[in-house]
C-alpha cells in the first residue's frame, strides 16, 4: 500500500502543501483532483521522492522511503507532467537509460507498449502521445509496484488515452498501485479512491458524482 500522512511543503514563503494525506491499497487506482496550481504536482513529486517534504510521513507497504531514499527508486516509477525523456536519444536508448532491468525485460516492455516501430527514432521526432507512451514505459520498465503519474493523458487523442487507460487497468489488475493527478472524467471514473486537493489539504471524496461540482467550486475560488 501507499500511505502519505500530514505532508507539508513550503516553496519560499508560500505554503504549497499544508496537510496532505493519501492512502492507496494494492490494486487501487487513486486519483488526486483539484484546480490548477493547488499543489497536486508538488505532492506527487514528493511521493515519488523527487522533492523532500518539510514534514509528514510516507509508507510504501512496510517501508519508509523518507528514511531510506533508495526505496523510492526501488518501488516506484514516476511519470511527471513534462517530458522526462532525453530528446536527442532514441526510444531504445531512453529505455536503457531509465531501466535497470536487462534486455529481456526491456523487450517485454517494448512489446507491451507497442514501441517496436519507433525504437530507433530519436524522441524529438515523436508526437506528444508517443512521448507519453515512452515515458510511462520507462517508469514501468523496472517492475515497480507503484506508479505515480501526473496527468498521464493530458493533451492526448482518444486512441492514445484509451491505450494508457488499458495499461492502468492491467497494472492495477496485477495488484499494482497507481496514484495520479487528473482532470479527465474517464480517469476519475476509473479511480477506486479520489482525493480532492484544495488550499494545500486533501479530502477523500466518497461520492464520485459530487466531484465535478467540487472542481467547479475550487476553480471559482481560484479565480
Amino acid at each position: 500500500m501507499v500511505k502519505a500522512e500530514h505532508i507539508s511543503k513550503k516553496l519560499g514563503k508560500k505554503e504549497i502543501l499544508k496537510d496532505v494525506s493519501v492512502f492507496a491499497a494494492p490494486g487501487e487506482c487513486v486519483g488526486i483532483i483539484g484546480a490548477n496550481g493547488c499543489g497536486k504536482s508538488t505532492f506527487l513529486s514528493i511521493l515519488a521522492g523527487i522533492e523532500k517534504p518539510d514534514a509528514g510521513e510516507i509508507w510504501f507497504f512496510k517501508k519508509e522511503p523518507l528514511k531510506n531514499r533508495r526505496i523510492f527508486s526501488d518501488m516506484c516509477g514516476y511519470v511527471p507532467q513534462g517530458n522526462p525523456l532525453m530528446e536527442d536519444l532514441s526510444v531504445r536508448d531512453n529505455l536503457s537509460l531509465w531501466s535497470r532491468n536487462g534486455k529481456a525485460k526491456r523487450n517485454e516492455i517494448i512489446s507491451r507498449f507497442q514501441l517496436e516501430e519507433m525504437l530507433s527514432m530519436p524522441v524529438k521526432k515523436l508526437s506528444g502521445g508517443m512521448k507519453r507512451r515512452v515515458s510511462i514505459a520507462c517508469a514501468a520498465a523496472d517492475d515497480v509496484p507503484i506508479l505515480i503519474m501526473d496527468e498521464p493523458t493530458a493533451a492526448l487523442d482518444i486512441f492514445h488515452k484509451e491505450n494508457i487507460h488499458d495499461f492502468i487497468r492491467d497494472f492495477t489488475g496485477r495488484n499494482g498501485i497507481v496514484v495520479m493527478a487528473t482532470h479527465d472524467s474517464a480517469e476519475i471514473e476509473m479511480c477506486d479512491r479520489i482525493y480532492f486537493m484544495e488550499e494545500g489539504c486533501t479530502e477523500e471524496i466518497a461520492d464520485k458524482q459530487n466531484i465535478l461540482e467540487k472542481i467547479k467550486k475550487g476553480r471559482n475560488k481560484h479565480e
Binding site: 512496510k62 512489446s111 507491451r112 509496484p145 507503484i146 495499461f167 492491467d170 496485477r174 495488484n175
Partner: peptide, 17 residues
Amino acid sequence: MSENNEVRFDPMTGQPV
C-alpha cells in the same frame, strides 16, 4: 497492452511475483 505472462505484485509487500 496486457500480456498473460506479466509480473504481478504481492499485495503484502509490493514485491514482483
